[in-house]
Design a protein around this nucleic acid. Structure first.
Length: 112
DNA sequence: CTATTGACGACAT
DNA sequence: CATGTCGCCAATA
């Protein structure tokens, strides 16, 4: 398509089905909440694909628009980020998430 | 098709 | 609680 009357918020042209699924799930994460790579993986139908999920977000085709910074590791650590984990922590703190020593405070209570 | 890499997870020690 | 090892999946060379 590529015309102006696109219905989707983003143009997933050129991306794989897996990447599109990941981006859609991440997009649903509300502000002030977080989720894990494993949870996203499970949501798209492959509980074991946590790594692949991270890889998909690493490409990050819609960098600041997709709340990819709300996706963290399953053990409560912030995990990685394309622009640096420091940046990720800063963004999370801005949304009300408290980070201590690289880990989310009240992690279990902030999971979506 | 095979090998390597990577924003991970679970388990053993 | 910290570190090490194995496993799993998808993209890329």
């Amino acid at each position: 398509m590529r015309n102006s009357n696109s219905k989707s918020k983003f143009d997933f042209s050129g991306l794989t089905s897996f990447e599109t699924s990941v981006l859609k799930v991440v997009w649903k994460i509300p502000k002030g909440k977080v989720t894990t790579y494993g949870q996203v993986a499970k949501k798209i139908g492959n509980p074991k694909s946590a790594r692949a999920v991270g890889n998909a977000l690493n490409k990050n085709p819609f960098a600041p628009e997709i709340p990819c910074h709300r996706v963290i590791k399953g053990n409560g650590e912030v995990g990685g980020f394309a622009s640096g984990s420091k940046r990720k922590i800063m963004l999370l703190k801005k949304e009300g998430i408290i980070i201590i020593e690289g880990k989310v405070k009240d992690f279990g209570n902030k999971q979506y």
